[in-house]
Structures are given as C-alpha cells and as structure tokens.
Design a protein around this nucleic acid. Structure first.
Lengths: 385, 385
DNA sequence: CTGTTAGCGCCTTCAC
DNA sequence: GTGAAGGCGCTAACAG
C-alpha cells in the first residue's frame, strides 16, 4: 500500500491496448480477442502486480461476490455452540467453492436498523440469517426490501421468505415416539418456547407422537427457557428441581437444545436421579456434545454441514435472480439412539414390545456399572469442592 | 433493491442543500453547520430511507471499516477447534465494539497469490492471520507490501511483523516442570514439529525445564504430527503404539495440541496404559476439551478471548498508522492442574518432595475408583463394537 | 458556511 | 477487434 496502486489503465498502457480490452481479457470475456493480445495484457498485469480494486469493481457492477451471515451473538462461536460451528463450516466451504467470501455481521449492532443499513448498503450481495427469533424485525424488513435472504433453521409465515430448515416437527415426533415405544407415558419437555420456530414445531411433533400413542397430551410437562440468554446453570438447576418435584414425576425428558440437554443430564444425578435408570434423556442435534456426554445422549440428528451448504446454494441462486418452486428446503431429521434412554423402571408392557435392538440392549447393560460408578464419582466431586 | 437506490444527492435535493453539506451532516463532520440545516438533512435522509453505499464510500475514502481473518481451513470452526472458536469470539466482539465488520477469507484459495490479491485489493483495511505455518508465503508477501497485518499465535523473524502471541516457551516450561516436580524423569513430547512457531517454542521450554532439573534433554522422546492434516485417529494410534514400545517407556506425555491430547488420553487405556496411573498426560489450551476429558487433563492455559481482542486492537492501531514499541504482544501462560497427572509409580523421592497440594492428592485418590471404572467401561465399549 | 468540481478504479454500451 | 466516453455513489479540495 506504500507504493500507489496499479490501475487497470496502467496495465492497458503497458500492454499497448485500451482499458476496455484489458478489462475484457482480465475478466475472461475475451471473445474474439487475438491470443497474442491477450498474452500481452496478461504479461503486463503480472509484471506490474496488478490487483483489481474490489470496491471499485463492486461499485461499477453492483456485485460484491460476498455473502453475509448475521450472528445472534459473538459467542455463537464459542465452545458450546457446536450446532452453529457445524453449519458455519458448511457455509464457508461452499462459499469458497463458489468463489465467494463471507462477511460476519454481528447482530450486536445498537439497532437492527443500522444492521439493515449495512446489509442493504451494498456490503454483501445477500445474507444468511441463522435461527433468529420469530419476532425478529430485521428479517421482515429485508424481505420487504426484496433483499436476497435465506433463513436457516427458522422460518416466517411470509411466503416470499426463502428458508433452509429441518423437519423439526418430525424430529420432535421421533424423539417422543422413541420414548413412548420404550414404555414412557409421562414425559417432560424443555424448549425455548414459541419464540423460535423450531421450538414450536418440535413441541408439536412431540404432541403428535403422544396423541398417536393414545396418551393424553396434557400429560406432557412443558417448560421453556429464555432463549435470549446463554445456557445458564441456574436455569438448569431450577429446571431439574421443577422436574424432580413434579407429581407424578415424568420418567423422561426431551430437551430441545443440546447444551442444555447435557447440562440437565449432568445435573439430574446431582439431584439424586440417575440417567437413564431413573430418567431417560433425549437431546437434539446429536453432535459430539451428545456423543461425549456421560452417558452418551440419545439425540435427534440434523445434517448441519449439509444445511449450511444448501443455504449457500439457495442464496446464490436467489442472488442470481432464480425462482423457486418451494420457499423452503427441508432436511429430514433422524434419531441416534445412545445410552441415555431405556425402559422406565415399571414399563408398561405395551411399549416394551416394540424394542428391536436386542444387541444394543445387552451392550447397554454391560456398560451400566461403569456409568454408574462414574456418576457417583461426579457427585463426590461436587460435594467435595 | 427493487426500487432504485436513494443516493446522497437525492437526500441533498430533498433537503435543499448540496451533496457536500449532506455528506458532512451524515458523517458527523458538522462543524459549523446550523442545527436547523442539519435537521433538514437528517429528516430527509430518514424520510427517503437513505442508506449510504458502502462500496462507493470505500472507493472514495480508501477505507472499508472491515478487517479480514484468514482461516487455515473451513473446519477451523467445527467442533474440535475450541482454540480457534474462542479466539474468534474475542475478535468478533472487539471488532463489533469498534464498529468494524469481519470478513472471513478461507485459505482454500487455489493459490496464495489470489488470496493475496483479494486482501490487498481493497476488500479489507487489514488482516489477521492465525497460527499459520512458518513457511507460509502469504505472510511475508503482506509484510513486504506493507499491508496492515497482525499475526496471531505465530510469528516470523521479520521485525516489521506485528504479532500477538503467548509465551509458549514458558508454557512448555510450566508443563515439563510440573511433571519433573512430580518425579517424572522420562517424558514424551508430541508436537507439530518446527513448522509452527509455537511448536518449536514449547519444545524449547520443555527442554529448559528438563535441563534445569538436572536431567538430560536426550531423555526426552519427541514425536511430531503432520499439522497439515486434521487430527486423525490413525496418527494417535501410531503415537500411542510408539509410546508403549519405547524402552525405557516414559511415564508422562506432553501433547502440545488439545484435541490430540484428548485423543491420546482416550487411546492410552485401550493400549493397556491407564491415565494417570501408568502415564501422566499434559495438554495445552485448557478449554472445555481438557476439562471434560476423562480424566480431566492437566493443561497449559492461554487467555484465548483476550488474545483475540488484543489482536484487533493492535491491528486497528496499525491501520490508523500508529507505531509500536515492540512488535509482539505476549500473554503469559499458566498451568491448570487436573487429574491426568500424578507421581509416577516408582517416583524418585527428589521430585516427590516438591509436591505441595496434599488436599488435592487426597481428593484425587478418592475419585480414582470412579475414574478407573469409567476407563474400563470405555475399553469394553471399544472392544464390543 | 455552502456549492462546484473532480476524481476514486472499474465496467460497459456504443461507435469505429 | 478495439477505443472513447459515461457512470456507479460518495468524498474532499477548493472556491465563493
């Protein structure tokens, strides 16, 4: 930056052609330009270390070759949020493949309007929003402005709103049906409330499975957390206490967030309820967080990197001006059964008959001793400190 | 974007002033402009929903208010790399505080030259590079071009190169001294080789501690991994096998990478060596990864979010044209002692005398049974599958 | 105090 | 096939 910038016109001059010609060559629009001329331009560019000025190009073309991602909070990156990290990895990889860069836009702007201004001010060609609140004002504003936007892991009712999401209703259904099949009849649900579309949807799916099994949906015990706060031990403690004192106490918990699910699974034994002996626990996302929990958590999986990749594809198509048959790309969810779920102590034989994986059951019991010991060790540790 | 853009001149016209005046007002350069005029401009801007065009401004000012981050790989985000995520969280938060956006530049460009072109092509005002190879060609090229750059978690020999890093030599020293004090005399070291500056430095610190204790540095068994690949089970398996068959076999391992340390700690019992009974393990970074390992790993901590924040501060100062006393900001490292280290089975009494925390020792043995059980459970699981 | 003017560096529609 | 000219939207000297 010390030496003044080499411009396209400098290259053109050096190659003995006009800026127009140089521009054509350098942008692969070299229809009917003699190979010899092309070479001259290319050589000159290399010799002078020519690098196009991105802002100038953006100004002239109206395209930045950049896509934005709105972060709910900077902490979206920190340890916990494997969910976010996995999606982001998919987004970045795909964006790079398409020769696009990714601009991180933290939602920590003082007002959503200033964020809106930046986004629509030509910083990016389009934007991805991830798991935002249904009450979010930025999303409808962008839609209204017809700015290219793809919502990831949430949707709005607006039909113009493109989104890439999972079939959360089915995800909830899978979780609950698994428990019902194991013989559970009283289930507690922890979820973010209706402020997130997937919260509402997963709960609906859970309800469906329960009703389908001939149980009353009123038997579901539902508790919401405040999604505006990061997962807090305080909340977990309260939730566990709430669970423990329910009467009759449920024999299973479905927690719609993976981090909180892990925290709950770790807190339950402290409150005297072991997992899965006393309580079965089902989490969502099924990343390493569920897998490394003690015991490993049965979890509803969504294909996170694929979601990220699909989001980029849809967004680029939208930027290109393409049209879409449907406004939402939906991925299926599946259930990864691990060691945190089993038949309740006094299982109704109806459900128990549906269990298939005998091999798994054996394995589970063989491990049980180790898991119990470990659980006790944890507790000692807690009290000892 | 459907309706054509509102320009500054439109606002000026609506307010009955010239573009210059409008520009002044909108950019808070309103020295000596009547409050009444200012209000007219502000009103007009709001009424017309004026949003400045970022690329145009960047072209005119030569400033983008954007900083770039070069990612080694898109996977930098995925679960594993807590190290990276923590630093990034610090970077984003600080950048947002300074009203800057962050552009992600994946190093997966086909050539470093094209990355170089993008960076210096006016996409960003400055760039942060994180933990890159000493052989990286991009870094010296940026320095040579005098482009604002701050290296995070690595450094080059070039004095013009600004960097924010930890005192890795002391970190290595702390790790090794801890082991020596516990009575270990034979130590194995796993590190990335000299391709990363911190690899070289940590090893040097380890050597210093060993020599200081009157031991021969030749007793250190050192093995490198290929940093160009993500942590692989294959490598871990080989490393553990290498360790197991060393003669005489070391009683401790220092692994300079947290993920690999965890993998090693998990693989050792599979090979018949329990942690910490047979082998003590020390890792680096001390994030949740070490903390949640079984047993929790003693680990050398670095203040990751602070590093990210400092990197942004330094970069912005550099962009502003500031000068610096020193070219490197260095944070201290500290040791978090957890359950993966203890006296070797036949500890030399020399070292043992240095142990202080009697309380801890007691606690550790109280937990030992639980940990051992858990270790066995893991092994069963491995064989069972 | 405010308006006029001239770029910033590139692309692109036109003539030649 | 190539060149000339205008404009993208904003800022910043320089007049007035």
């Amino acid at each position: 930056m010390a030496t003044s910038r080499v411009r396209l016109s400098d290259v053109a001059k050096a190659a003995g052609v006009s800026p127009t010609t140089a521009s054509f060559v350098l942008n692969d629009r070299c229809e009917s330009i003699p190979a010899e001329t092309q070479q001259r331009v290319l050589d000159a560019a290399r010799r002078l270390h020519y690098r196009p000025h991105i802002a100038a190009r953006a100004l002239a073309t109206g395209r930045t070759r950049r896509i934005g991602i709105v972060l709910n909070q900077p902490e979206s990156f920190s340890t916990n949020d494997t969910y976010f990290a996995e999606i982001l990895a998919g987004i970045i990889r795909r964006a790079t493949e398409h020769d696009r860069n990714v601009l991180l836009l933290s939602a920590h702007y003082t007002t959503w309007r200033s964020l809106f201004a930046d986004i629509t001010g030509g910083a990016v060609d389009g934007v991805l929003q991830i798991s935002r609140f249904v009450s979010d004002e930025l999303t409808p504003a962008l839609i209204e402005a017809e700015f290219p936007l793809v919502c990831v892991s949430f949707r709005t009712d607006d039909e113009r709103c493109l989104s890439v999401d999972c079939d959360n209703e089915s995800g909830g259904y899978l979780a609950a049906r698994h428990l019902v099949e194991l013989g559970h009849t009283r289930i507690a649900v922890l979820y973010p409330g209706d402020v997130l579309s997937w919260g509402r949807e997963r709960l609906a799916g859970i309800r469906r499975a329960v009703v389908e099994a001939g149980l009353s949906p009123d038997g579901l015990q539902v508790r919401a957390w405040d999604e505006k706060r990061l997962p807090e031990p305080t909340w977990v403690r309260d939730a566990v206490e709430w669970f423990r004192t329910l009467d009759p106490r449920p024999t299973a918990v479905i927690c719609c967030d993976e981090i909180r699910a892990r925290m709950v699974a770790e807190m339950l034994p402290v409150a005297g309820l072991s997992v899965p002996e006393d309580v079965s626990v089902v989490s969502f996302n099924s990343t390493e967080i569920s897998d490394r929990c003690i015991p490993p958590l049965t979890s509803v999986r969504q294909p996170l990197p694929e979601i990220g990749r699909a989001a980029v594809d849809v967004l680029l198509e939208r930027i290109r001006g393409g049209t879409f048959d449907a406004s939402v790309v939906q991925f299926p969810m599946s259930l990864d059964i691990r060691q945190s779920t089993r038949r309740p102590r006094c299982a109704a034989s109806t459900g128990a008959s549906l269990i298939k994986a005998t091999g798994k059951t054996r394995m589970r019991s063989r491990e049980a001793s180790g898991i119990r010991s470990r659980t006790r060790a944890r507790k000692d540790q807690e009290h000892g400190e």
